[in-house]
Simulated assay, not measured.
Amino acid sequence: MLNRLLRFVRNFYVATGLGLLVWMTFFDANDLPTQIRNWWQLRKLDGDAAYYQEKIKAVQTERREVLGNDRLREKFAREKYLMKKPGEDVFVIVDEQNEQLEK
C-alpha cells in the first residue's frame, strides 16, 4: 500500500512538472517563441545602435572640422546644402533617376 502511494505521489509530481513545463513553454505570457523573437529583435536593435553610434561620431568629427574654419564652413554649405552667393548660379547634374551624381 505504501509502495502504491509513493508511486502515485512520484507520478503526480512528474505529471505536474511536465504540465508546468508545457505551460511555461507554450502558453505563458513569456513563452519560448516570444523569448526567441525578443532575443532576435534585441540583436537587431544592438546592430542599429552600433550603426548610429558610428554615424554620430562621423557627424561630430565633421562638425568639429567645419566649425573651426570659415572656408570649410562655406565649402560644406555649398556642397551639402547647395547654397550660393548672390548673383551666382548653381548647376546640379543628375542621372536618369533624378539623383545627384556627386553626393
Rank of each mutant, 00 (worst) to 15 (best):
M1V: 13
M1P: 15
N3T: 12
R4Y: 09
L6P: 05
L6D: 09
R7K: 13
R7H: 12
R7D: 13
F8V: 10
F8D: 13
F8C: 13
V9W: 05
R10H: 11
N11E: 12
F12M: 10
F12C: 14
V14W: 11
V14N: 07
V14M: 07
T16R: 15
T16Y: 12
G17I: 03
L20D: 03
L21K: 00
W23I: 01
W23G: 04
M24W: 00
T25N: 01
F26S: 05
F26I: 02
F27G: 00
F27C: 01
D28C: 04
D28E: 05
N30Q: 15
N30A: 15
L32P: 00
P33Q: 04
P33G: 03
P33V: 03
T34K: 02
Q35L: 15
Q35P: 08
I36G: 01
I36P: 00
R37Q: 03
W39L: 12
W39H: 08
W40H: 08
Q41P: 03
L42Y: 06
R43H: 11
R43L: 09
K44I: 14
L45W: 13
L45E: 11
D46R: 14
G47N: 09
G47D: 11
D48T: 06
A49I: 14
A49H: 13
A50W: 02
Y52F: 14
Y52E: 01
Y52V: 06
K55E: 10
K55W: 10
K57T: 02
V59G: 01
V59L: 10
Q60K: 11
Q60F: 10
T61M: 13
E62T: 08
R63M: 06
V66I: 04
V66D: 01
L67K: 10
G68D: 08
G68L: 08
N69W: 02
N69S: 02
R71P: 00
L72F: 02
L72R: 12
R73F: 15
R73W: 07
R73T: 14
R73E: 13
E74V: 04
E74G: 03
A77W: 10
A77T: 08
A77L: 14
R78V: 15
E79I: 14
K80W: 10
K80S: 10
Y81A: 04
P86V: 00
G87S: 06
E88W: 05
D89G: 12
V90N: 05
V90G: 03
F91I: 07
V92P: 00
Q97W: 07
N98M: 02
E99H: 11
L101F: 04
L101N: 02
E102A: 08
E102M: 10
K103N: 06
